[in-house]
Design a protein around this nucleic acid. Structure first.
Lengths: 149, 149
DNA sequence: TAAATAATTGAATATTATACGAAAATATGA
DNA sequence: TCATATTTTCGTATAATATTCAATTATTTA
């Protein structure tokens, strides 16, 4: 068939969704126009970055979830933001945080399985100038993106 | 005024949003009804758990972000899922993962500031039977929930 | 290969978001 | 304090959108 599913999943990761004003209006017992006004303000102020879907990652072939703690090589050590921005573009990376302590970066990574994870690590050591990484594999994802799984 | 904003933020954390079928149809050059059908199937199969918003957490008063690694006390050590489920209900907790290694649990926590974080820790040690915790404070959130911040 | 099941699609309908304007509430400044 | 400006609320009208339905086509199953 047309196999629209993967395209939808890609679009829904960070967008192509919108608030249900009518439902919210009923729920909060306020006029729809008032809800509309308040939402538009939230968006204009930049408080809302995007509307998207939360998936059952196991069911869409991203069941393998790893937290990666990374050190950058000395040439990039002083400027973790440059690498962080580059890593943020990686479609397998759900989150990127810059930290103090033993590691400069904390990543949350989603892949299909161990094999894909291994491929990712090999690629990333070069690409992102990792000096050392420590990984913590999630045995069970109980909650993600504020949604109970 | 009515101060609808906090209510909206609460609703948008895990729901009250919906796909934009018309926009997707245009983007993918497919009929709206086909898009509709495929989305409904994704939902029925449980591949999509929810539609919600991603925020600029700093702007909505949740700018302090901490990764918490936790050990459970011996009485709960053998059954981390029970505690994980309880922690998952915590509105400050964005994610909960059960892990192997030095710590059983990895949490991602969002609070207004250090003070609120400290209050959370004090509460949680008792409430969630933590034996030991290690915290990693995010200095800068570069990406979260697949959205570049 | 026949029958059953699943997926695509257009037309009709129901629902929903949005634009607009008026009124109310709040903030600002002398 | 009062007048004025700005922000927020909200009803009505309209535009846009999702959804239902039924027919057609494609795919799977036996």
């Amino acid at each position: 068939m047309k196999n629209i599913e993967p395209k939808l999943i890609e679009l829904f990761k960070t967008g192509y969704c919108t608030p249900q004003i009518a439902r919210i209006a009923k729920k909060l017992h306020e006029p729809g126009t008032t809800i509309h006004y308040n939402i538009k303000r939230l968006e204009k102020e930049g408080k809302i970055k995007a509307y998207g879907a939360v998936f059952d990652y196991k069911k869409i072939g991203y069941g393998y979830c790893v937290y990666v703690f990374a050190n950058l090589k000395s040439d990039k050590y002083g400027d973790p933001e440059e690498m962080a921005d580059k890593i943020a573009k990686d479609p397998n990376v759900e989150s990127v945080d810059i930290c103090s302590g033993d590691f400069e970066l904390i990543l949350k990574l989603r892949t299909r399985d161990v094999d894909e994870y291994y491929e990712w690590v090999k690629k990333s050591i070069k690409l992102y100038h990792f000096a050392k990484t420590l990984s913590q594999i999630s045995l069970k994802q109980v909650k993600a993106e504020f949604v109970k799984l």
